[in-house]
C-alpha cells in the first residue's frame, strides 16, 4: 500500500467519526481501540512524528492508569480525572493533530472548492502563520527585556503589573503592525477580488484509497458503538 496523506474530506470524515464515537460511547476506557486505529491511520500517511510523540504520551497515560487501577497509585500532580479525560479524548486528539498538520494550502484548496469567501480562507491561513510568527516575536520581546534588565527576578517580583505591561504592550503593538503588513500585502495581491479563489494544491477527486479509508472509518465507528455501548442520555 502507498503511504501518503489522505485527501482533506477523508480527514474531516475521520474527525466526525471519532467525535461521534467518543460522544456516544459509555465505555470511555475502550476508546483505546479507536486511538490505536487513529495512530495506524496517521502512520498510513507517514506522519511519523505524530505516531511517535502521541504514541509515547499515550503509553505513559496507559501506564499511569494501569498503576492507578491495579496498584492504588495516587496522583500528586495532575489528577486521575485528567488522565481519564485525556485517555477518552485521545482518538479525537490524534485525528485532529493529523488534520491541523495538513499543509494549509491543501485546506485552503478544499475551502475554495467549497466556494468559501476569500476573507475566511485568509483568516485560516493567518491562523497557521500565527505560531511561527509569534514564536519569533515573543522571543524578540523577551530578549530586549533581558537586555534592558527588565527580567531580573527582583524586578519581576517587585513590580509584577509593570512587567506584564512590558511584555504585553510591545507584543500587541507588533501584532497590530504584522496584521497591517499582512493586509496590505494581501490587498496588493488581489485579495479583494470578488468571486471564488483558485488554488495551487489539491487534486479535486478522491482516489480509491480515499474512498476505502472513508468506508473503513465508518465501519470502525459502527462496530465500536455496537461493542462499546451507546450512552443513554436519559439518566
Amino acid at each position: 500500500m502507498r503511504l501518503e496523506p489522505f485527501a482533506v474530506p477523508v480527514k474531516l470524515w475521520a474527525f466526525c467519526c471519532v467525535l461521534i464515537a467518543v460522544l456516544l460511547t459509555r465505555n470511555g476506557i475502550l476508546t483505546w481501540t479507536l486511538t490505536l486505529f487513529a495512530l495506524a491511520y496517521t502512520a498510513m500517511q507517514r506522519r511519523w512524528s505524530i505516531v511517535l510523540s502521541y504514541g509515547s504520551f499515550y503509553a505513559l497515560l496507559g501506564c499511569l492508569l494501569y498503576a492507578i487501577r491495579f496498584h492504588q497509585l495516587k496522583m500528586a500532580l495532575f489528577s486521575e480525572f485528567h488522565l481519564i479525560l485525556f485517555w477518552t479524548l485521545s482518538p479525537i486528539a490524534v485525528v485532529s493533530w493529523d488534520l491541523i498538520k495538513t499543509p494549509p494550502g491543501e485546506l485552503s484548496a478544499f475551502l475554495s472548492r467549497m466556494k468559501t469567501p476569500t476573507p475566511v480562507i485568509l483568516g485560516l491561513l493567518v491562523i497557521f502563520r500565527f505560531f511561527p510568527t509569534m514564536k519569533a516575536e515573543v522571543a524578540a520581546v523577551i530578549q530586549s527585556m533581558r537586555n534592558r534588565g527588565l527580567t531580573a527576578p527582583a524586578f519581576l517580583l517587585r513590580r509584577p503589573l509593570e512587567s506584564l505591561e512590558f511584555i504585553l504592550v510591545p507584543l500587541l503593538l507588533r501584532c497590530l503592525q504584522i496584521a497591517d503588513q499582512l493586509s496590505v500585502s494581501a490587498v496588493a495581491r488581489g485579495a479583494e477580488r470578488p468571486g471564488t479563489r483558485g488554488s495551487y494544491f489539491g487534486n479535486t477527486r478522491l482516489s480509491g484509497r480515499d474512498w476505502a479509508m472513508i468506508s473503513i472509518w465508518s465501519a470502525v465507528t459502527v462496530i465500536f458503538l455496537i461493542v462499546g455501548d451507546v450512552r443513554s442520555w436519559s439518566n
Partner: peptide, 17 residues
C-alpha cells in the same frame, strides 16, 4: 475589511494561545 479579518484572527489566536 481584509484588515479587520486578519487583525481579529491574529489577536484571537493570541488570546486563545
Amino acid at each position: 475589511t481584509i484588515r479587520d479579518v486578519i487583525t481579529t484572527v491574529l489577536l484571537s489566536m493570541l488570546l486563545i494561545a
